[in-house]
Design a protein around this nucleic acid. Structure first.
Lengths: 232, 232
DNA sequence: GTCTATCCATAATA
DNA sequence: TATTATGGATAGAC
Protein backbone atom coordinates (compact mmCIF):
# COMPACT_ATOMS: atom_id res chain seq x y z
CA UNK A 1 0.00 0.00 0.00
CA UNK A 2 1.17 3.40 -0.78
CA UNK A 3 1.91 5.53 2.20
CA UNK A 4 2.05 9.10 1.19
CA UNK A 5 4.78 11.15 2.61
CA UNK A 6 3.37 13.51 5.17
CA UNK A 7 3.90 17.11 4.41
CA UNK A 8 5.68 18.97 7.08
CA UNK A 9 2.82 21.15 8.14
CA UNK A 10 0.31 21.40 10.90
CA UNK A 11 -2.04 18.46 10.96
CA UNK A 12 -5.50 19.89 10.95
CA UNK A 13 -7.36 16.70 11.78
CA UNK A 14 -7.37 16.50 15.51
CA UNK A 15 -7.27 12.75 15.97
CA UNK A 16 -4.52 12.38 13.41
CA UNK A 17 -2.60 15.13 15.06
CA UNK A 18 -2.94 13.56 18.47
CA UNK A 19 -1.92 10.22 17.15
CA UNK A 20 1.12 11.66 15.48
CA UNK A 21 1.88 13.59 18.59
CA UNK A 22 1.84 10.55 20.79
CA UNK A 23 3.88 8.45 18.43
CA UNK A 24 6.49 11.04 17.75
CA UNK A 25 6.61 12.07 21.32
CA UNK A 26 7.49 8.57 22.43
CA UNK A 27 9.97 8.31 19.61
CA UNK A 28 11.59 11.49 20.71
CA UNK A 29 11.87 10.21 24.20
CA UNK A 30 13.39 7.06 22.92
CA UNK A 31 15.90 8.95 20.81
CA UNK A 32 16.83 11.17 23.65
CA UNK A 33 17.42 8.21 25.85
CA UNK A 34 19.50 6.61 23.19
CA UNK A 35 21.72 9.56 22.59
CA UNK A 36 22.11 9.99 26.30
CA UNK A 37 23.30 6.47 26.75
CA UNK A 38 25.30 6.13 23.58
CA UNK A 39 27.13 9.39 24.02
CA UNK A 40 27.14 9.58 27.76
CA UNK A 41 25.47 12.91 28.02
CA UNK A 42 22.55 14.48 29.74
CA UNK A 43 19.71 15.23 27.45
CA UNK A 44 16.06 15.87 27.73
CA UNK A 45 13.08 16.78 25.65
CA UNK A 46 10.59 19.36 26.66
CA UNK A 47 7.22 19.36 25.01
CA UNK A 48 4.41 21.69 25.71
CA UNK A 49 1.28 19.87 24.85
CA UNK A 50 -1.51 21.57 23.04
CA UNK A 51 -3.67 22.14 26.03
CA UNK A 52 -1.19 21.67 28.77
CA UNK A 53 0.02 24.54 30.80
CA UNK A 54 2.84 22.48 32.18
CA UNK A 55 5.32 21.00 29.75
CA UNK A 56 6.13 17.35 29.60
CA UNK A 57 9.74 16.55 30.17
CA UNK A 58 11.84 13.49 29.45
CA UNK A 59 13.55 12.00 31.08
CA UNK A 60 12.69 13.25 34.47
CA UNK A 61 16.02 13.66 36.14
CA UNK A 62 17.16 16.13 38.76
CA UNK A 63 19.22 17.96 36.18
CA UNK A 64 16.26 18.33 33.93
CA UNK A 65 14.15 19.58 36.75
CA UNK A 66 16.76 22.16 37.54
CA UNK A 67 16.82 23.45 34.03
CA UNK A 68 13.11 23.53 33.86
CA UNK A 69 12.83 25.26 37.17
CA UNK A 70 15.28 27.86 36.03
CA UNK A 71 13.35 28.63 32.94
CA UNK A 72 10.15 28.56 34.82
CA UNK A 73 11.48 31.20 37.14
CA UNK A 74 12.53 33.26 34.20
CA UNK A 75 9.14 33.10 32.64
CA UNK A 76 7.62 33.94 35.98
CA UNK A 77 9.28 37.32 35.96
CA UNK A 78 8.20 37.90 32.44
CA UNK A 79 4.69 36.88 33.33
CA UNK A 80 4.50 39.24 36.26
CA UNK A 81 5.81 42.00 34.11
CA UNK A 82 3.09 41.43 31.61
CA UNK A 83 0.49 41.16 34.30
CA UNK A 84 1.48 44.55 35.57
CA UNK A 85 1.17 45.98 32.13
CA UNK A 86 -2.25 44.46 31.82
CA UNK A 87 -3.25 45.81 35.17
CA UNK A 88 -2.22 49.27 34.11
CA UNK A 89 -4.13 48.88 30.92
CA UNK A 90 -7.23 47.68 32.65
CA UNK A 91 -6.97 50.40 35.22
CA UNK A 92 -7.10 52.85 32.41
CA UNK A 93 -10.06 50.94 31.13
CA UNK A 94 -11.72 51.43 34.47
CA UNK A 95 -11.13 55.13 34.33
CA UNK A 96 -12.44 55.22 30.83
CA UNK A 97 -15.52 53.27 31.78
CA UNK A 98 -16.07 55.44 34.77
CA UNK A 99 -15.73 58.55 32.70
CA UNK A 100 -18.18 57.17 30.22
CA UNK A 101 -20.57 56.15 32.93
CA UNK A 102 -20.20 59.48 34.61
CA UNK A 103 -21.08 61.32 31.46
CA UNK A 104 -23.95 59.01 30.75
CA UNK A 105 -25.41 59.45 34.17
CA UNK A 106 -24.99 63.14 33.84
CA UNK A 107 -26.75 63.14 30.52
CA UNK A 108 -29.57 61.21 32.07
CA UNK A 109 -29.70 63.55 34.96
CA UNK A 110 -29.72 66.54 32.67
CA UNK A 111 -32.63 65.24 30.68
CA UNK A 112 -34.53 64.14 33.71
CA UNK A 113 -33.99 67.46 35.28
CA UNK A 114 -35.23 69.19 32.21
CA UNK A 115 -38.29 67.06 32.17
CA UNK A 116 -38.81 67.72 35.78
CA UNK A 117 -38.78 71.44 35.33
CA UNK A 118 -41.15 71.24 32.43
CA UNK A 119 -43.65 69.01 34.07
CA UNK A 120 -43.46 70.76 37.36
CA UNK A 121 -44.18 74.12 35.90
CA UNK A 122 -46.92 72.79 33.74
CA UNK A 123 -48.45 71.03 36.63
CA UNK A 124 -48.24 74.05 38.77
CA UNK A 125 -49.84 76.10 36.10
CA UNK A 126 -52.66 73.71 35.50
CA UNK A 127 -53.58 73.06 39.05
CA UNK A 128 -53.33 76.36 40.73
CA UNK A 129 -54.01 78.83 38.01
CA UNK A 130 -52.08 81.28 40.08
CA UNK A 131 -49.44 82.09 37.57
CA UNK A 132 -49.53 83.15 34.00
CA UNK A 133 -47.25 82.34 31.19
CA UNK A 134 -44.99 85.23 31.91
CA UNK A 135 -44.67 84.10 35.44
CA UNK A 136 -43.80 80.65 34.29
CA UNK A 137 -41.14 82.09 32.12
CA UNK A 138 -39.89 84.22 34.90
CA UNK A 139 -39.81 81.30 37.21
CA UNK A 140 -37.99 79.29 34.69
CA UNK A 141 -35.37 81.92 34.38
CA UNK A 142 -35.25 82.22 38.08
CA UNK A 143 -34.85 78.52 38.56
CA UNK A 144 -32.22 78.53 35.94
CA UNK A 145 -30.21 81.22 37.59
CA UNK A 146 -30.64 79.61 40.91
CA UNK A 147 -29.55 76.28 39.62
CA UNK A 148 -26.48 77.77 38.13
CA UNK A 149 -25.72 79.46 41.32
CA UNK A 150 -26.16 76.36 43.37
CA UNK A 151 -24.16 74.30 41.00
CA UNK A 152 -21.34 76.76 40.76
CA UNK A 153 -20.68 76.61 44.43
CA UNK A 154 -23.14 74.73 46.49
CA UNK A 155 -20.91 74.77 49.50
CA UNK A 156 -20.69 78.48 49.36
CA UNK A 157 -24.45 78.66 49.42
CA UNK A 158 -24.45 76.40 52.37
CA UNK A 159 -21.98 78.44 54.29
CA UNK A 160 -23.78 81.61 53.38
CA UNK A 161 -27.06 80.30 54.65
CA UNK A 162 -25.60 79.04 57.87
CA UNK A 163 -23.12 81.80 58.53
CA UNK A 164 -25.55 84.64 58.04
CA UNK A 165 -27.42 83.26 60.94
CA UNK A 166 -25.89 86.00 63.04
CA UNK A 167 -25.20 88.68 60.54
CA UNK A 168 -28.72 89.01 59.40
CA UNK A 169 -29.33 91.81 56.99
CA UNK A 170 -32.75 93.21 56.45
CA UNK A 171 -33.92 91.79 53.25
CA UNK A 172 -31.49 88.93 53.31
CA UNK A 173 -32.25 88.27 56.88
CA UNK A 174 -35.66 87.11 56.14
CA UNK A 175 -34.62 84.58 53.64
CA UNK A 176 -31.90 83.22 55.78
CA UNK A 177 -34.19 82.94 58.65
CA UNK A 178 -36.51 81.07 56.47
CA UNK A 179 -33.85 78.60 55.60
CA UNK A 180 -32.79 78.18 59.13
CA UNK A 181 -36.36 77.59 59.96
CA UNK A 182 -36.46 74.85 57.50
CA UNK A 183 -33.31 73.38 58.78
CA UNK A 184 -34.31 73.37 62.34
CA UNK A 185 -37.51 71.72 61.56
CA UNK A 186 -35.27 69.11 60.49
CA UNK A 187 -36.84 66.17 58.87
CA UNK A 188 -36.76 67.77 55.56
CA UNK A 189 -35.20 64.86 54.12
CA UNK A 190 -32.26 66.14 52.28
CA UNK A 191 -31.89 69.56 53.69
CA UNK A 192 -28.65 71.13 52.80
CA UNK A 193 -26.26 71.19 55.66
CA UNK A 194 -22.55 71.35 55.88
CA UNK A 195 -22.08 67.81 56.87
CA UNK A 196 -23.97 66.53 53.95
CA UNK A 197 -22.20 68.72 51.58
CA UNK A 198 -18.85 67.59 52.73
CA UNK A 199 -19.70 64.10 51.83
CA UNK A 200 -21.26 65.19 48.66
CA UNK A 201 -18.56 64.68 46.18
CA UNK A 202 -16.62 62.28 48.29
CA UNK A 203 -13.60 61.74 46.19
CA UNK A 204 -15.43 61.84 42.96
CA UNK A 205 -15.21 65.11 41.23
CA UNK A 206 -18.40 65.36 39.38
CA UNK A 207 -18.78 68.96 40.29
CA UNK A 208 -17.50 69.80 36.87
CA UNK A 209 -20.43 68.10 35.36
CA UNK A 210 -22.70 70.57 36.88
CA UNK A 211 -20.60 73.47 36.00
CA UNK A 212 -21.05 72.70 32.41
CA UNK A 213 -24.72 72.20 32.80
CA UNK A 214 -26.74 73.39 29.91
CA UNK A 215 -28.69 75.69 32.08
CA UNK A 216 -27.04 78.43 30.19
CA UNK A 217 -29.52 78.46 27.41
CA UNK A 218 -31.55 76.17 29.34
CA UNK A 219 -35.09 76.00 29.84
CA UNK A 220 -36.94 73.61 27.85
CA UNK A 221 -38.27 74.51 24.55
CA UNK A 222 -41.81 73.52 23.97
CA UNK A 223 -41.56 74.19 20.34
CA UNK A 224 -42.81 70.87 19.27
CA UNK A 225 -45.04 70.02 22.11
CA UNK A 226 -48.68 69.46 21.70
CA UNK A 227 -49.20 68.65 25.21
CA UNK A 228 -52.17 66.83 26.53
CA UNK A 229 -52.44 67.93 30.06
CA UNK A 230 -55.32 65.71 30.96
CA UNK A 231 -52.98 63.32 32.55
CA UNK A 232 -51.23 65.88 34.64
CA UNK B 1 28.37 -5.56 4.46
CA UNK B 2 27.26 -6.40 7.83
CA UNK B 3 25.82 -3.56 9.78
CA UNK B 4 25.72 -4.61 13.30
CA UNK B 5 22.88 -3.44 15.34
CA UNK B 6 24.26 -0.92 17.75
CA UNK B 7 23.88 -1.99 21.29
CA UNK B 8 22.29 0.58 23.44
CA UNK B 9 25.31 1.35 25.51
CA UNK B 10 27.96 3.98 25.86
CA UNK B 11 30.16 4.17 22.79
CA UNK B 12 33.66 3.87 24.03
CA UNK B 13 35.37 4.89 20.86
CA UNK B 14 35.50 8.62 20.94
CA UNK B 15 35.31 9.34 17.21
CA UNK B 16 32.44 6.93 16.82
CA UNK B 17 30.74 8.44 19.79
CA UNK B 18 31.15 11.94 18.43
CA UNK B 19 29.94 10.88 15.08
CA UNK B 20 26.95 9.24 16.53
CA UNK B 21 26.40 12.21 18.75
CA UNK B 22 26.40 14.64 15.84
CA UNK B 23 24.19 12.52 13.69
CA UNK B 24 21.68 11.75 16.32
CA UNK B 25 21.72 15.24 17.61
CA UNK B 26 20.77 16.64 14.24
CA UNK B 27 18.13 13.97 13.86
CA UNK B 28 16.78 14.83 17.20
CA UNK B 29 16.56 18.44 16.26
CA UNK B 30 14.84 17.53 13.07
CA UNK B 31 12.34 15.42 14.93
CA UNK B 32 11.66 18.08 17.43
CA UNK B 33 11.03 20.57 14.71
CA UNK B 34 8.76 18.15 12.98
CA UNK B 35 6.64 17.41 15.97
CA UNK B 36 6.42 21.09 16.72
CA UNK B 37 5.14 21.87 13.29
CA UNK B 38 2.99 18.82 12.78
CA UNK B 39 1.28 19.07 16.12
CA UNK B 40 1.43 22.77 16.62
CA UNK B 41 3.21 22.62 19.90
CA UNK B 42 6.27 23.98 21.51
CA UNK B 43 9.05 21.49 21.96
CA UNK B 44 12.73 21.57 22.44
CA UNK B 45 15.65 19.34 23.23
CA UNK B 46 18.20 20.18 25.80
CA UNK B 47 21.55 18.39 25.70
CA UNK B 48 24.41 18.80 28.07
CA UNK B 49 27.45 18.10 25.96
CA UNK B 50 30.16 15.94 27.25
CA UNK B 51 32.44 18.73 28.25
CA UNK B 52 30.03 21.57 28.26
CA UNK B 53 28.72 23.19 31.36
CA UNK B 54 26.13 25.01 29.34
CA UNK B 55 23.48 22.89 27.74
CA UNK B 56 22.78 23.00 24.08
CA UNK B 57 19.22 23.69 23.18
CA UNK B 58 17.27 22.93 20.09
CA UNK B 59 15.57 23.72 17.96
CA UNK B 60 16.68 26.92 16.31
CA UNK B 61 20.15 26.89 17.53
CA UNK B 62 22.05 26.35 20.72
CA UNK B 63 21.59 29.86 22.01
CA UNK B 64 20.14 30.58 25.37
CA UNK B 65 18.09 33.17 23.59
CA UNK B 66 16.18 30.42 21.94
CA UNK B 67 15.57 28.72 25.19
CA UNK B 68 14.14 31.90 26.51
CA UNK B 69 11.96 32.15 23.50
CA UNK B 70 10.79 28.63 23.95
CA UNK B 71 10.00 28.99 27.56
CA UNK B 72 8.51 32.26 26.82
CA UNK B 73 6.21 30.64 24.37
CA UNK B 74 5.51 27.86 26.73
CA UNK B 75 4.32 30.14 29.43
CA UNK B 76 2.01 31.82 26.99
CA UNK B 77 -0.92 29.67 27.96
CA UNK B 78 -0.21 30.16 31.60
CA UNK B 79 0.11 33.85 31.09
CA UNK B 80 -3.13 34.08 29.21
CA UNK B 81 -4.82 32.11 31.88
CA UNK B 82 -3.61 34.47 34.55
CA UNK B 83 -4.40 37.44 32.40
CA UNK B 84 -7.96 36.27 32.11
CA UNK B 85 -8.19 35.88 35.82
CA UNK B 86 -6.83 39.34 36.28
CA UNK B 87 -9.15 40.72 33.71
CA UNK B 88 -12.08 39.16 35.44
CA UNK B 89 -10.94 40.55 38.71
CA UNK B 90 -10.45 44.01 37.32
CA UNK B 91 -13.72 43.86 35.51
CA UNK B 92 -15.36 43.25 38.81
CA UNK B 93 -13.39 46.16 40.14
CA UNK B 94 -14.76 48.26 37.36
CA UNK B 95 -18.27 47.24 38.20
CA UNK B 96 -17.65 47.92 41.80
CA UNK B 97 -16.17 51.31 41.08
CA UNK B 98 -18.94 52.09 38.72
CA UNK B 99 -21.53 51.10 41.27
CA UNK B 100 -19.83 53.27 43.82
CA UNK B 101 -19.57 56.13 41.40
CA UNK B 102 -23.16 55.69 40.37
CA UNK B 103 -24.34 55.87 43.93
CA UNK B 104 -22.13 58.81 44.65
CA UNK B 105 -23.37 60.73 41.70
CA UNK B 106 -26.88 59.89 42.66
CA UNK B 107 -26.30 61.12 46.17
CA UNK B 108 -24.94 64.32 44.76
CA UNK B 109 -27.84 64.64 42.46
CA UNK B 110 -30.25 64.04 45.28
CA UNK B 111 -28.76 66.73 47.42
CA UNK B 112 -28.45 69.15 44.60
CA UNK B 113 -31.98 68.52 43.66
CA UNK B 114 -33.17 69.13 47.15
CA UNK B 115 -31.23 72.32 47.27
CA UNK B 116 -32.65 73.30 44.00
CA UNK B 117 -36.19 72.87 45.13
CA UNK B 118 -35.60 74.74 48.32
CA UNK B 119 -33.82 77.66 46.81
CA UNK B 120 -36.08 77.87 43.85
CA UNK B 121 -39.19 78.02 45.93
CA UNK B 122 -37.73 80.46 48.35
CA UNK B 123 -36.46 82.62 45.57
CA UNK B 124 -39.75 82.52 43.85
CA UNK B 125 -41.40 83.36 47.06
CA UNK B 126 -39.20 86.30 47.78
CA UNK B 127 -39.23 87.82 44.36
CA UNK B 128 -42.72 87.47 43.11
CA UNK B 129 -44.94 87.57 46.10
CA UNK B 130 -47.43 85.53 44.21
CA UNK B 131 -47.48 82.46 46.35
CA UNK B 132 -47.71 81.80 50.01
CA UNK B 133 -46.26 79.10 52.14
CA UNK B 134 -49.13 76.78 51.57
CA UNK B 135 -48.70 77.19 47.92
CA UNK B 136 -45.06 76.42 48.25
CA UNK B 137 -45.90 73.27 50.09
CA UNK B 138 -48.47 72.34 47.54
CA UNK B 139 -46.05 72.90 44.78
CA UNK B 140 -43.47 70.85 46.50
CA UNK B 141 -45.85 67.99 46.83
CA UNK B 142 -46.82 68.48 43.30
CA UNK B 143 -43.26 68.47 42.15
CA UNK B 144 -42.68 65.42 44.20
CA UNK B 145 -45.48 63.50 42.66
CA UNK B 146 -44.51 64.65 39.27
CA UNK B 147 -40.94 63.68 39.81
CA UNK B 148 -41.94 60.26 40.90
CA UNK B 149 -44.09 59.92 37.91
CA UNK B 150 -41.43 61.10 35.55
CA UNK B 151 -38.85 58.90 37.12
CA UNK B 152 -41.00 55.84 37.08
CA UNK B 153 -41.47 56.00 33.40
CA UNK B 154 -40.09 58.99 31.70
CA UNK B 155 -40.49 57.51 28.30
CA UNK B 156 -44.13 56.92 28.88
CA UNK B 157 -44.55 60.54 29.75
CA UNK B 158 -42.75 61.43 26.65
CA UNK B 159 -44.99 59.37 24.46
CA UNK B 160 -48.05 60.71 26.18
CA UNK B 161 -46.96 64.23 25.59
CA UNK B 162 -46.26 63.69 21.95
CA UNK B 163 -49.09 61.35 21.10
CA UNK B 164 -51.83 63.63 22.41
CA UNK B 165 -50.84 66.03 19.73
CA UNK B 166 -54.24 65.85 18.07
CA UNK B 167 -56.63 65.18 20.89
CA UNK B 168 -56.63 68.58 22.50
CA UNK B 169 -59.53 69.25 24.82
CA UNK B 170 -61.04 72.61 25.65
CA UNK B 171 -59.57 73.33 28.98
CA UNK B 172 -56.48 71.57 27.98
CA UNK B 173 -56.31 73.63 24.90
CA UNK B 174 -55.57 76.71 26.85
CA UNK B 175 -52.79 75.15 28.73
CA UNK B 176 -51.26 73.87 25.61
CA UNK B 177 -51.50 77.25 24.12
CA UNK B 178 -49.90 78.67 27.15
CA UNK B 179 -47.06 76.28 26.97
CA UNK B 180 -46.65 76.85 23.32
CA UNK B 181 -46.55 80.48 24.14
CA UNK B 182 -43.62 79.86 26.38
CA UNK B 183 -42.09 77.77 23.83
CA UNK B 184 -42.31 80.43 21.24
CA UNK B 185 -40.82 82.92 23.55
CA UNK B 186 -38.52 80.46 23.21
CA UNK B 187 -34.96 80.23 23.85
CA UNK B 188 -34.99 77.12 25.70
CA UNK B 189 -32.42 74.58 25.00
CA UNK B 190 -33.02 71.16 26.39
CA UNK B 191 -36.35 70.41 24.97
CA UNK B 192 -37.64 67.02 25.66
CA UNK B 193 -38.05 65.10 22.52
CA UNK B 194 -38.20 61.50 21.68
CA UNK B 195 -34.83 61.44 20.14
CA UNK B 196 -33.20 62.67 23.27
CA UNK B 197 -35.04 60.30 25.44
CA UNK B 198 -34.02 57.37 23.39
CA UNK B 199 -30.46 58.20 24.04
CA UNK B 200 -31.15 58.85 27.60
CA UNK B 201 -30.17 55.71 29.32
CA UNK B 202 -28.10 54.45 26.47
CA UNK B 203 -27.03 51.14 27.79
CA UNK B 204 -26.64 52.22 31.34
CA UNK B 205 -29.57 51.47 33.48
CA UNK B 206 -29.57 54.09 36.08
CA UNK B 207 -33.27 54.38 35.88
CA UNK B 208 -33.40 52.49 39.08
CA UNK B 209 -31.59 55.21 40.80
CA UNK B 210 -34.42 57.49 40.29
CA UNK B 211 -36.99 54.97 41.16
CA UNK B 212 -35.58 54.75 44.59
CA UNK B 213 -35.44 58.45 44.94
CA UNK B 214 -36.22 59.68 48.38
CA UNK B 215 -39.17 61.56 47.12
CA UNK B 216 -41.25 59.12 48.98
CA UNK B 217 -41.05 61.03 52.16
CA UNK B 218 -39.68 63.62 50.09
CA UNK B 219 -40.39 67.07 49.66
CA UNK B 220 -39.25 69.08 52.37
CA UNK B 221 -42.05 69.71 54.64
CA UNK B 222 -42.52 73.30 55.47
CA UNK B 223 -45.21 72.51 57.92
CA UNK B 224 -43.23 73.66 60.83
CA UNK B 225 -41.49 76.43 59.10
CA UNK B 226 -41.34 79.77 60.65
CA UNK B 227 -41.09 81.43 57.42
CA UNK B 228 -40.98 85.12 57.21
CA UNK B 229 -43.25 86.08 54.43
CA UNK B 230 -42.53 89.74 54.65
CA UNK B 231 -40.43 89.50 51.63
CA UNK B 232 -43.18 88.00 49.63
C1' DG C 1 31.22 14.40 3.99
C1' DT C 2 29.04 10.64 1.13
C1' DC C 3 27.04 6.26 0.38
C1' DT C 4 24.45 2.33 1.39
C1' DA C 5 22.55 -1.49 3.68
C1' DT C 6 19.86 -2.01 7.32
C1' DC C 7 16.86 -0.74 10.85
C1' DC C 8 13.45 2.00 12.65
C1' DA C 9 9.63 5.32 12.91
C1' DT C 10 5.36 6.02 11.67
C1' DA C 11 1.27 7.13 8.49
C1' DA C 12 -2.25 4.69 6.84
C1' DT C 13 -5.25 1.08 7.47
C1' DA C 14 -7.96 -2.58 9.59
C1' DT D 1 -5.29 -1.03 19.56
C1' DA D 2 -2.61 -3.75 16.05
C1' DT D 3 -0.63 -4.21 11.58
C1' DT D 4 2.04 -3.02 7.71
C1' DA D 5 4.29 -0.69 4.06
C1' DT D 6 7.29 2.89 3.37
C1' DG D 7 10.29 6.76 4.05
C1' DG D 8 13.58 8.16 6.97
C1' DA D 9 17.47 7.43 10.23
C1' DT D 10 21.83 5.85 10.76
C1' DA D 11 26.09 2.73 11.51
C1' DG D 12 29.75 1.68 9.16
C1' DA D 13 32.57 1.90 5.06
C1' DC D 14 34.80 5.05 2.12
Amino acid sequence: MSRKKVKLQYIINQSSRRETYNKRKSSLLKKVNEISILCGIEACVVVYGENNVEPEVWPTGPETQNVLHKFHSLSELERNKRAEDLEGYLKKSIEKSQEQLRKQIFENKKKRFTNFIDKALINKHNNTDLVNINELNDMKDELNDLMEFIDSNINEVEKKLNSTNVEVGEHVGHRIEAMIGIEQQGNIGNAVNEGDMKDDVHGLDIQNDYQCLPWDNPMLSYHDYNMDTDGL
